[in-house]
């Protein structure tokens, strides 16, 4: 378990929004299909995805996802950043792909 601030510092992620730096994350979920995330992601997860628009924030907020990591250098739309602040979801970015990101986050959380 670690908080989103620690996670982003440790893995050197770009920070787009960090409304609650001490929110705890305990698990991860990797998917670009929002219904799949909706149906299967655990609460307090970090979501690893390339869906860089505000609907992703809506999904995250509804099921209690605390952080989103946008992979492959995808940039969030401006309204996504605003939504992340409003809904208190951390929004991070990396140039790495979903596979590498998942593996590194799992290692950081000690669940690999």
């Amino acid at each position: 378990m670690m908080n989103v601030k620690e996670l982003s510092t440790k893995l050197e992620y770009t920070v787009f929004a960090l409304p609650d730096p001490v929110a705890q994350v305990t698990d991860g979920y990797t998917s670009d299909l929002l219904s799949d995330v909706m149906g299967n992601a655990a609460e307090d997860s970090v979501l690893i995805t390339i869906q860089a628009h505000r609907n992703t924030i809506a999904v995250a907020s509804l099921i209690g996802i605390k952080a989103i990591v946008l992979c492959n250098g995808r940039m969030p739309s401006p309204d996504m950043v605003v939504a992340a602040e409003q809904e208190t979801v951390a929004l991070l970015g990396t140039a790495e792909n979903q596979f590498t990101t998942s593996h590194r986050i799992a290692a950081a959380l000690g669940i690999s």
Partner: peptide, 11 residues
């Protein structure tokens, strides 16, 4: 956009 995964109604 990440929709249309065919899981909506089953979910």
């Amino acid at each position: 956009l990440g929709f249309g995964a065919g899981m909506g109604l089953p979910n």
